[in-house]
Simulated assay, not measured.
Amino acid sequence: MYFPESDHLFTGVDYKTGKISWKLPTPGRIREFQIVNNHIIIASIDLYGIMAIHAHTGKILYELPLHSDKNCQVDFAPRPIGFDETYFYVANFNCSLISAYEISSGKKIWSKTESASALYNFTVAGKYIFLGYNLHNNDNLSGEIMLLEAHTGKLLYRQFALFDIFTDPVPYGNKIYYHTYDYRLQELDVENKTERTLFTFGKSNDFGGNQIYRQDHFLFLQDIQYNILKIDLHTFKKEIFDKGHKGMLGVYKIKDKINLIY
């Protein structure tokens, strides 16, 4: 198990024995991290940058410092991280929309730059990266979704969308499901580069700000009335699965029974 013990200490614990494996002093708070290739931790550190840590020993493998210029500023925002077998990808980092780095060395492979003031979120789906952003301009909200080739950064598809950056997009098969600020659940077919609206919600029954969780071929989401909605991705039927009074934090399955985490 790995966790930031404080703003300046990152800790690895052997969960079988409960003993501390290592402690690593850090130059700031780790706000986001992922374990890639089963043994490398890619961590985003406030006001510092990216650090690669060996998960078994706590040794620092390489560092990618933050820098600011006239086009962007260093901030406290967590930087979304995704990965595949070869590269890891990070958004909102060093004036880039999204960048790809080699996991083993930290070498930059490619990067794309768009509006420095926009906010981004993305997911890695096989050989693709699905990315969305939104941009506030006075009282107006605008945004786009993009589909990139993961290993080259080549732009394959882009479309206007009021993309909700706080709800993580969810891949399933060759489809990506995402939420928009105009109360829609969208489906993007990454192979055919087509999309459609699955459901349109409203102010009173939207799920904005909550996450979409997938279990098997079902999506689970919680609306603002605390209803847990279950959507079948084979039939696209929607039903109320549960009525809760707390926020849903996850979905898991044991012995063919689906359980919710509150």
Rank of each mutant, 00 (worst) to 15 (best):
S142V: 10
L135C: 10
L135W: 04
A150E: 01
N92W: 01
I53D: 09
M51K: 11
G173F: 01
L188R: 08
P80W: 03
L131E: 12
P80Y: 07
F163H: 04
F122S: 06
F160A: 15
Y178K: 04
R79M: 12
Y62P: 00
C72E: 02
E114C: 01
V190I: 07
P78G: 10
S68G: 14
I98H: 05
M51L: 10
E114V: 00
K70I: 04
N94Y: 02
N92I: 08
L155A: 13
H136P: 01
L156I: 05
F163R: 05
Y178W: 06
F76C: 09
D84K: 10
G106K: 10
H179P: 02
A91C: 15
A150G: 01
C95M: 06
T167L: 04
A77N: 12
R184H: 14
I145D: 04
S96Y: 06
A161G: 01
I98S: 10
F83N: 13
T86F: 01
Q186K: 08
I53V: 08
A55N: 11
N121I: 01
N174G: 03
A55S: 11
S99C: 02
G106N: 11
G82F: 01
N71K: 11
D182W: 08
Y48T: 13
Y128T: 00
F160P: 00
L141M: 13
F130Y: 02
P169G: 07
K112Q: 14
I165N: 03
S117T: 09
Y89N: 06
I98V: 10
F93V: 08
I53K: 01
G132I: 01
A150C: 02
D84A: 07
T180V: 06
T152D: 08
D69P: 01
P171E: 03
A52M: 02
E144P: 03
T167A: 04
V170K: 06
S111D: 15
A100W: 03
K127E: 05
A52G: 03
F166V: 05
F122Y: 03
G106Q: 13
L148V: 06
K107Q: 13
Y157R: 11
Q159W: 01
L61T: 09
I109D: 08
I109Y: 03
N140G: 01
Y48F: 15
I109L: 07
I53P: 06
Y128V: 00
L97A: 11
Y62W: 12
C95D: 11
Y157C: 09
E149P: 00
R158D: 09
A116E: 13
P65R: 15
G173Y: 02
A116V: 13
K127F: 00
E144I: 00
D139N: 11
G82Y: 00
N71P: 07
